[in-house]
Amino acid sequence: MAKIRADNVKKTFKIKKEGNEFDELPALAGVNLEIDPGEFMVIVGPSGCGKSTFLDLVGGLTHPDEGTIAIDGKPITGPSRDRAIVFQQNALFPWRTTLGNVEFGLESINPDQDERREIALDYLSLVGLSGYHNHYPHQLSGGMKQRVSIARALALNPSIMLMDEPLAALDAQTREFLQRDILRISKESRKTVLFITHSIDEAVFLGDKVAVMSARPGVIKRVVDIPLTAEERASDDVVAATEFVQSRQLLWRLLKEEVVKVEEAQSNIHAEDHSNSLLLDKKTGLINSVRAFARI
């Protein structure tokens, strides 16, 4: 178990224009967030607000322009096997079997082939996929693929799991099963989890805490405690519990303000620049994702 602490983390992307000129795109404008050891932290926020950018920073795949992210007090300098990442979809290597995918990360730390195989098989059965070790990713359903991705990350026995919308592409039913499994596994193995989603229900169901991010450039607008116990979450009608409904409403209100901001910003762009079809495309994309929010 490890503690994650982000202090005033800023990140601006430089987008290359013609010649040597750059456009600046501020993605994160000073993120402050603390995640306690063993805590399940969920981040929600409007599409494009910088959630994945933040997760990549915690993963050590990119570096912040300002501020620091520290694990147990030690600033992150790069990727580490102690922080495993699960991506949204299609991140399995299609040329490896299920077993080969789960063994992937182990190959650089454990030279014993039989041991690796055993560990990988264990994690496959933990995610409910025993018997599928010789299948290739294209032979699996979307939900099974994500189970393999989770097993691949767990196999490294990291103390921190970083999950970037791992269930976003799945149908509602598959999603619910996986949510329950993720909750069970994370608590049993006492991982510290940073989980990104755009579904409020998912956030309330999984999170000990839910951090709401502002519209881009992202900051953490508020961290909401979810007062549900493990037993309450395990129950079939947890969605009807008063705590669930109230958390949901609070998060919805907080998010709506940000979504409106995105819409306003977009209509300003609209007024300023009629001719730039690229921007307009981006705008419809954003507004559609805003609408998707409204439906959740």
Binding site: D56, L61, P79, R81, R83, I85, N90, A91, G105, S108
Partner: peptide
């Protein structure tokens, strides 16, 4: 090559050669 494959490799601490 899909950048997400490279991200997975990097996140698992692979050397440049691997």
């Amino acid at each position: 090559v899909d950048p997400v494959y490279i991200k997975v490799g990097r996140s698992m601490g692979l050397t440049k050669f691997n």
